[in-house]
Design a protein around this nucleic acid. Structure first.
Lengths: 152, 152
DNA sequence: TCTAATCACCGGAAAATTTACGGTTTATTG
DNA sequence: CAATAAACCGTAAATTTTCCGGTGATTAGA
């Protein structure tokens, strides 16, 4: 597995925070030519280090003021129960993320809705899924830090 | 307030999933001119609907195989205790996100590390912060869904 | 050691995209 | 219903991306 060097890491660092940087701007920071940077970025995408490039929206401006974490406990842990829960839960548009977890509950969901009413609607939809024992909901009071970039 | 129409929503929808789309590609999908799309995207950025454009990395390829959620309970909830905890916790590179929460604990942290050893190192650093009562750690077994895009 | 192969790099040119601009249509408003 | 503003369009200029041939450094094998 051909590894990546310090220059690649620096490119990833930059693009994680601002993918609108031009190759010219990057090349200036790294003291390399535009062509060299271009080839490296191309490779980092091709090899899958960069999965995709996305726009991050201001969620309050698009009416997603409420974020909740929901802890879900299932009745049992048969392959069937687990996979059918997963298949159903990813269909809910309110579910931004879903992780199967170790510990005292089975899944953590991150839910984004307009407000508590909308969360309530979601909650009742979720609770109708089969094999769910409990759903515990926790609500975000304030966002202290929210980062998509890994330190490198 | 919503000086944003259906066309703008469609643009946001597209760019949330792939911000590498050219204005030409977008204009083809929306049956508008390149110039019209360009002006709308410019406005959506200027007005803050699009906060930023970032590269999403494959965390396993950059050695962040372990994701944990840590629930933190503080000793008290004085303004001082809260704000000094927040100020300290955002400095840890392992902390990708930090939310103050309602409920039986005060903060949820999302932690990304290479492995359990690295999490342990983080845990011991975190535990030395003043005014922390308990830290409960939950580990991700598998990622069922992970999305940065809000449905619009 | 020498030679061949590979790799990252470079500058420059071609292709494509972004950005700026003037003018037209469409929508809003007094 | 005229005046004004807003959204749109095509074109052209500026900039960026992408392609290409060639150079020097590094490595592997003869």
């Amino acid at each position: 597995m051909p590894d990546i060097d310090q220059t690649d890491l620096e490119i990833l660092r930059l693009l994680q925070h601002n993918a609108e940087l031009t190759n010219k701007e990057i090349s200036a920071k790294l003291h390399k030519s535009v062509a060299a940077v271009h080839e490296r970025v191309r490779r980092l995408k091709e090899q899958g280090y960069i999965k995709r490039v996305v726009a991050i929206l201001d969620r309050k401006k698009i009416d997603r003021s409420l974020i909740a974490f929901s802890h879900v406990l299932l009745k049992d842990h048969s392959a069937n129960t687990l996979s059918s829960f997963e298949k159903e839960v990813i269909r809910f548009p309110e579910v931004m993320e879903c992780f199967q977890m170790t510990g005292t509950f089975d899944f953590i969901l991150r839910i984004a809705t307009a407000d508590m009413d909308a969360y309530h609607v979601f909650y009742r939809k979720l609770a109708t899924l089969p094999n769910i024992t409990t759903v515990q909901s926790f609500f975000v009071l304030s966002e202290t830090k929210s980062d998509t970039a890994y330190p490198l």
